[in-house]
Design a binder for these strands. Sequence first.
DNA 1: TGGTAAACGAGACGGTACGTCCCGTCTTAGA
DNA 2: TCTAAGACGGGACGTACCGTCTCGTTTACCA
Lengths: 210, 210, 210, 210
Amino acid sequence: MRGHLTGGGARGDVRGGGVHHGNRHGRSEQARQAVLDAADNLLVERGFAGVTIEGIAARAGVAKQTIYRWWPSKVDVLMDAFIEDMAQELTPAEHGDLGADLRVHLGKLADFLTQSDSGAVFRALAGQAQHDPDLAARLRTDYLGRQRDRDRLPLLRAVERGELSPDLDVDAAVDQLVGPIYYRVLVTGDPVPPAFTDQLVHQFLTLHAH
Amino acid sequence: MRGHLTGGGARGDVRGGGVHHGNRHGRSEQARQAVLDAADNLLVERGFAGVTIEGIAARAGVAKQTIYRWWPSKVDVLMDAFIEDMAQELTPAEHGDLGADLRVHLGKLADFLTQSDSGAVFRALAGQAQHDPDLAARLRTDYLGRQRDRDRLPLLRAVERGELSPDLDVDAAVDQLVGPIYYRVLVTGDPVPPAFTDQLVHQFLTLHAH
Amino acid sequence: MRGHLTGGGARGDVRGGGVHHGNRHGRSEQARQAVLDAADNLLVERGFAGVTIEGIAARAGVAKQTIYRWWPSKVDVLMDAFIEDMAQELTPAEHGDLGADLRVHLGKLADFLTQSDSGAVFRALAGQAQHDPDLAARLRTDYLGRQRDRDRLPLLRAVERGELSPDLDVDAAVDQLVGPIYYRVLVTGDPVPPAFTDQLVHQFLTLHAH
Amino acid sequence: MRGHLTGGGARGDVRGGGVHHGNRHGRSEQARQAVLDAADNLLVERGFAGVTIEGIAARAGVAKQTIYRWWPSKVDVLMDAFIEDMAQELTPAEHGDLGADLRVHLGKLADFLTQSDSGAVFRALAGQAQHDPDLAARLRTDYLGRQRDRDRLPLLRAVERGELSPDLDVDAAVDQLVGPIYYRVLVTGDPVPPAFTDQLVHQFLTLHAH
DNA sequence: TGGTAAACGAGACGGTACGTCCCGTCTTAGA
DNA sequence: TCTAAGACGGGACGTACCGTCTCGTTTACCA
């Protein structure tokens, strides 16, 4: 799944096979993909400052104007690349057991943030968002909000199963579970091993599980 | 008021009183201060991207070379301005009671991060650090390390007083106490009211206090 | 008469009234006219550099491709507009008297070059022709050659009437009569009043008339 | 020595030998010369449209900003290059005989306009001046006015010697002598051989010499 | 009378050059 | 010896047009 920006495949569709080059009835999917790939690669290879519109255009074999036509700035390109890359949705699996659910989910989250290319893009975007309120808003809408929904899922299911009290402040619980992970990733730069996430889960269960 | 960080006149001294413009006897304190003020103001007024060496120089009435002579880059200027401004050291007071110590300290930390000008500078630097490993390292050395030391203080004192077990993993405890705060500040952008920090403390005490 | 590019009304004809939009049997006269008008207006309003294919297309309500389909470049559009506008052919009248013929003809030529809109287009084209040999060649073929033929007419008639010697170098004579006029128009920018052209005629007659 | 445009060697001077790179007390003569040379060469090699600020900068090994700092546009660069190149001032020699003076002078003028590199630059500038009133004005001030003064010199000397009447309209005479030459150069594109200029002189003498 | 082919509007595309901003380096004259 | 001033080579910015290329529609002719 990709391209909520494409305006719904309707526009970007290539009807009869055969690559098209863009016209009034739709943009070039080929160019779009080349731009996102180039941006991604540049970020990984050269860091955030190494991502420039000119560099993306050159590497993607695309005209600068084509980038400006569809994205307001380089962070928007990276944002799209990020959304695009987040194929694996980090949706928590269900094991019928809160402890297992949380341990697996937080471990995956930590890996995503610290090990994956997408995680690198996220860290760059989160950094930029500190001095770019618009990006901050969009990041929250397009990623963090959805991610938080996924983070809450194991807890809600446990409430339904009766493992957790219906009175639990779910939002606060999420803050306490994932907060320390993001803190290590964005602030201290310490690694986030399973031991760390498992301990978070352990203490959470100690406090809240029957 | 500023400049407890000047290194104790040693560097910036002006011997005979009277403003000087820099000479064989040392750098101009006047120029140094003007640069830091200008950087600070520009950050507040125009955001991180609005802070440029040329802009600082123009506003400070200083030559670019003077900036390059003393600071390697604009983030170093901001770093100095940040350290300079951090007058209140966020050193936790001692009330002889862990709960009180933690509640007051986390509340102050939250206020610092979300309300103060220095906090704004910190957020900008933390953002930049996501794509600037040198800055990240320096930020950890010059601020975060010291801040973490201060964050541990209440816990260490409680251990000494016997309020906490000597087996406590202090680092993990700090992560769980301040992590959610930084998470809100840097990631979700949610406010961090006393209710939030107080709850963090409450749950920590539930888990660890005798 | 207009439009050697139209290939003779044969192609462009719209038989039964009613606007058409072009089809396999002919181009749209409407579009052609809109393009020439737009080019003309843009030249007068914004100067040569202000005439762009995109600008013409936008103002004419025509697609760029329609322009490129029929004209190789913007100077060709202007060339057509120029030819189109040159309704009055500057054909010298015959008064049976060389002096009168020349005075009237040179006066008209001067007025055309300095006062008329067509003259402005000509000056622009002549300017461009200095760095565009193709345009220069075409300007000579389509305008200057014909104009020179007209310029020679009074002299040839005077030779026939016996007012001028059959040995006269007619080309050199034309150079000397119109050269100073174009010199003022294109080089010095001085006005070209009747007194100036009359003096040219007077001196020419002094030298060559019996 | 060159460069009346340098603002008088005062600014551009390099005092103690040793190339300098420009500073508050003067611009870089080295850069200035490289720009003018590059512009000149590009014009000759690739024509007027082939002269671009980027091209000049690249060939001269100079930053675009350095060009924009000192010249408003590419035609100003070419103008300077033209003035610079016009080392040979086309000042008419004095033979004590009007016929000889004029024949030699007009022959040199024709050669300059049709054969020399500077002549090519002049034609390009004259062309551009047709759609650039500012350039037209500057061309008249900095070149044509001075050239006309030189063109008048043989006539004024002949008046003093008594070869021509003091009542002669010198300006009109110049128009008639050089007008046909510029006409051929800028309008018809015909060559301007000595036979042509000699005939101009012959007819002028027939009319005006005692 | 319906198929079809040319011309049309629209506009996306890969490009080039524009003129501007800021970078970090350098050279100077004055205090 | 430090400063203010500012010219320099460089790189990226965002914009304007270039000339080419589909698209889907309109329209007149001919089968």
